[in-house]
Amino acid sequence: MPAPEATPLCLAREAMGTRFEFVLSAGDLDEVSLRAVGEEALDEVVSLGERLSWFSMGSVVSRLAAAAGAEPVRVAPDVFSLLTLSRQVWLGSAGAFDPTIAPLLRLWGLRGRVSEAPPTEEALAQARTLVGLDKLDLDPLACTARLGVPDMSLDLGAVAKGWALDAAASMLRAAGVQTALLHGGTSSIHGWGAPPGQRGWGVRVAPPPGSSAPPLTVLLCDASMSVSAPHGRRGVAGAGHVIDPRTGLPAGGAELACVLGPGGAACDAWSTACLVLGERPPGLPEAWTTLLLRGGIWQVRGPQEACISQG
């Protein structure tokens, strides 16, 4: 008889206001060793979350906001890379993804509730003067960043989970973990290897409640994946939690957007852009796969199309 397959190890931790779960298969590691490396990777997720947290006075986000309109802030190289990536996606999506969106999120009650009523046009216009990644100065030589207008602030929540999963995956792979599925809040996912007898990790993408569209299953293997949708958390007047930075209004481009590709942070950023635009962004490289749900119809495009099935 063949030896029974080892049960995968499941670990979880609260971070970034959500739950991160890791499913790890042993490879050459014994269970305690696997648990140890998994816990260390989860520690890293917590640490990265604190570094980007809007709520931590010590985070890079808080320091940049405190110095907005004044002097540049020296940031860690990995944070600088994340800001550079954000700028690339901002450019590639014609501003549909924009981490300077924080003032608009505040108006919609998505970063502390300021009002029960939807924001007025004047308030939106005023807030929009503080939005735009063109107002973020990045100096690669000095490794500094500067928000150009006083009261500007960054919200890196749209990319933080994928960024953390990238780092965790890197640690786990270096430690010898050969098969794993990691997710943060079920919307940012990274998988490599495959469960026994499978070609990848089956990840179901469910349509929003009330949609007539069928669910899709993505066979995820050595890739990241990110799902964005307006449903779930709500702001004032029932606004969805994704705001279009170009208009200041709740995003209405698509009912759901999903991006598969080689990096978690990038997947997170591009999926937000897809949702806002309601279509594949012009600057998204061909190597990335997109799933868009519009009008109850799925549109799938990209090299991993064959890994996606109904059901």
């Binding site: 260390e40 640490s47 570094r51 940031v75 860690a76 990995d78 490794c143």
Partner: peptide, 15 residues
């Protein structure tokens, strides 16, 4: 683990 933690403090806040 500790070296990593201290390096992050240096890079993030003591640049």
């Amino acid at each position: 683990r500790q070296g990593r933690r201290l390096t992050v403090e240096l890079l993030d806040k003591l640049g």
